[in-house]
């Protein structure tokens, strides 16, 4: 505890009344480890050698609609920083300070190329979607997952609007697919997928694990939600086997999304190279007509 006491001497703290106060080594130990454990990290027994400054959250805009809760344009910070998001349930539009009502929506997430889409986390945590015109309070800060130190809050209040209004304001739905509901009527053989068409050029990005279907060299993911028309069509990319025997054989794959009457489908077919599964398909492919 001596190291924690030494470290605590250089840390400024505040009382609940906002007055400057000293913090003990024990309190610092609890405070930093609380943050780490919340984010899924283990308790740190040894005091960090030093507490480096944590950056402030810089972002462009946040939207709350009846179907989406999303923060856009977050400036990227490298690991060990993770974003902590706190939000409130819907409040009367007459409430101007509701940050005390916020709860943790995400205890530590990596922003996704500038986005923090917390829709699912928000609805599962708060349980009730805000009504149109209600205000939702938002707090965000970076957490240094190595030391448990957090940065200053970025605070915002957002009025719940319709999807159409958000679209007019500039909220665009990114063509990224990674958490769609599985269609249970057929057995899927693709998992841990991340399919993204937002490269800005005629290229798509995929990262997925293929476990192989009934046909050799062919894996599919069956989903309940139809893919948008704009993302249909094939592209080729490379996969590497991840077999239990340690094989690292390489495959050329064709990736394609399509919609059927009862389900939508992401198919990954090996067209050259080895057909071993499971395989890790990853990288950028050029989309062609």
């Amino acid at each position: 505890m001596a190291a924690w006491n030494t470290l605590a001497k250089g840390v400024k703290s505040k009382t609940i009344l906002g007055e400057a106060a000293e913090i003990s080594g024990l309190n610092l130990y609890i405070k930093l480890n609380y943050n780490r454990v919340m984010a899924g990290y283990s308790i740190m027994a040894d005091a960090p050698a030093a507490l480096r400054a944590v950056p402030n959250v810089v972002y462009e805009a946040a939207w709350v609609t009846l179907t989406a809760v999303i923060i856009k344009g977050i400036e990227h910070e490298e690991m060990p920083f993770k974003l902590v998001v706190r939000m409130s349930g819907g409040q009367s539009n007459g409430v101007s300070k509701g940050w005390s009502k916020t709860v943790i929506i995400s205890p530590g997430m990596e922003e996704d190329w500038g986005d923090a889409d917390v829709t699912k986390l928000y609805f599962s945590t708060i349980g009730v979607q805000p009504a149109l015109g209600e205000k939702v309070f938002l707090e965000m800060y970076w957490l240094n997952t190595t030391t448990g130190v957090t940065g200053l809050d970025a605070r915002d209040s957002i009025t719940c609007i319709t999807d159409e209004e958000a679209s007019i304001e500039g909220l665009t739905v990114r063509f990224k697919f990674n958490e769609m509901d599985l269609y249970e009527g057929r057995a899927s053989s693709v998992s841990d997928y991340d399919l993204d068409f937002s490269t800005g050029i005629a290229a798509a990005y995929i990262d997925a694990i293929c476990t192989g279907g009934a046909t050799e060299g062919y894996s599919s993911l069956y989903l309940n939600t139809a893919f948008p028309e704009q993302v249909k069509g094939p592209f080729n990319c490379v996969a590497r086997s991840t077999e239990a025997n340690g094989n690292l054989k390489v495959q050329l794959c064709t990736v394609e999304v399509k919609n059927s009457k009862n389900y939508s489908q992401l198919s990954i077919a090996t067209i050259a190279g080895n057909t071993g599964v499971p395989s890790h398909v990853f990288g950028v492919g050029i989309r062609y007509e």
């Binding site: 996704d112 190329w113 500038g114 986005d115 665009t172 739905v173 990114r174 063509f175 990224k176 993204d196 068409f197 937002s198 490269t199 800005g200 050029i201 005629a202 290229a203 798509a204 990005y205 704009q230 993302v231 069509g233 950028v284 989309r287 062609y288 007509e289």
Partner: peptide
């Protein structure tokens, strides 16, 4: 490549 560069998938 980088991602989140707009919403205009091309071929």
């Amino acid at each position: 490549a980088t991602l989140n560069n707009g919403n205009n998938p091309q071929k």
